[in-house]
């Protein structure tokens, strides 16, 4: 056996990864350019706002309410050990707004939206609809990618905001019904404690996650392989890539906002 084979294989996969990163950067650059420069497709944009934002509300709401409720129970159990049960409202609020709201909401939206975008665009690709767009003088990046990425970047923060409220409500319900907190005091503690940047940082994260979700959906859809198998692979890659990027960028953003 050729002794250089393992090295060659490492080299090949490294080159492939670098090439993929290069393609992705170019794709990102083009997307940003097409979002900024006319022509714009407002119809496509509104469709995307409905599909990505409005229709994700139930999923994000469910995620938030159960997360907030579980969080309240856990914080209570933990803080009980050193007699600090009264911090439940504050920790639930900060946990939801800074971390769990954006991250869990983002992951749920990734599962829902990155997959559907990749499947839709991938199918368009394999059935030559993308080619047809080009021959009809319509740039697919402008017509398909730009509206979806813009819509996701703008609507996911709103979803995160709604999720924050619902999550805090989930904690409130458990706190007041199961853990014996006074209703007015729970709310007062929550809102006196929360600072603008606790919520704001979560919304900024939401915008970044929305951008990544739609970008991954569009990128893998546009680069889908042939046939049903190609579309299936594109969907899987889009969801995996979006989820990993959400978790990684969440760490980086948290470090940037609250590190030091």
């Amino acid at each position: 056996m050729d002794v250089t084979a393992p090295v060659a294989s490492i080299g090949r996969s490294t080159l492939r990864t670098i090439a993929a990163l290069g393609r992705l950067s170019i794709f990102t650059g083009q997307t940003l350019r097409h979002i900024l420069l006319p022509p714009y497709y407002p119809r496509e944009f509104w469709h995307a706002v409905i599909a990505i934002g409005w229709l994700s509300l139930p999923v994000v709401g469910m995620t938030a309410v159960f997360t907030g409720a579980a969080l309240a129970l856990q914080i209570y159990a933990g803080s009980n050990r050193f007699g600090a049960e009264s911090v439940v409202p504050q920790i639930v609020a900060i946990g939801m707004t800074r971390e769990l709201g954006p991250v869990l909401g983002g992951l749920m939206v990734a599962a829902r939206v990155a997959s559907s975008i990749a499947a839709e665009i991938g199918t368009m690709k394999v059935t030559e609809q993308i080619d047809a767009l080009v021959t009809l003088s319509t740039n697919p990046m402008k017509y398909l990618t730009a509206p979806r990425v813009l819509a996701a970047t703008l609507t996911v923060p709103v979803l995160v905001g709604v999720g924050d409220v619902i999550g805090i409500m989930g904690g409130y319900l458990v706190g007041t019904s199961r853990l014996g907190f006074n209703e007015a005091a729970y709310l007062k503690n929550t809102f006196d404690f929360l600072q603008f940047w606790d919520v704001g940082s979560g919304l900024v994260k939401g915008a970044a996650f929305g951008f990544l979700i739609a970008l991954m959906g569009c990128y893998f859809g546009m680069h889908s392989g042939r046939g049903a198998q190609g579309v299936g692979a594109a969907v899987k890659s889009a969801v995996v890539a979006a989820s990993v990027l959400i978790l990684a960028s969440n760490y980086l953003l948290t470090e940037a906002f609250f590190g030091s």
Binding site: E120, Q129, D131
Partner: peptide
Amino acid sequence: LSHFGMLFQGGALFDSMTVWENVAFRLLRG
């Protein structure tokens, strides 16, 4: 491309829009 028309072998119709919106695609934008 604005001077071209193309019929694809598989049709390549946009399945997210109605038949007339497909036919009038060029006449609705650009």
